[in-house]
Amino acid sequence: MALDYEESKQKIIEGLKKKQKTKSKFYFNDLSKILNAKPREAKKIVNRMVEEGLLEYWSSGSTSMYGLPGTGKQAAAEHED
């Protein structure tokens, strides 16, 4: 069954906000876990959220992560917070 976009979107936003205190960047796996979905299904939702500017990418060059826009502070990548 295809996931409902609006519902999934809310789940991800809430899920990430809840963890905001300790973490600002998330692996793709963390997102599919929040949705409790197969990776390929989750990817459709995540892609659309990026397109709509609700999520943004962060990359070290070798690994990619996702975050809510404006929250993926550089300091977090250098383990400062």
């Binding site: 990359s59 993926g72 250098e78």
Partner: peptide, 19 residues
Amino acid sequence: KHGGIVGVFGYGGGVIGRY
């Protein structure tokens, strides 16, 4: 610095942020 949030619209790869 380590990595960054830059890219071109619609792509999650191909650009590596360096500061």
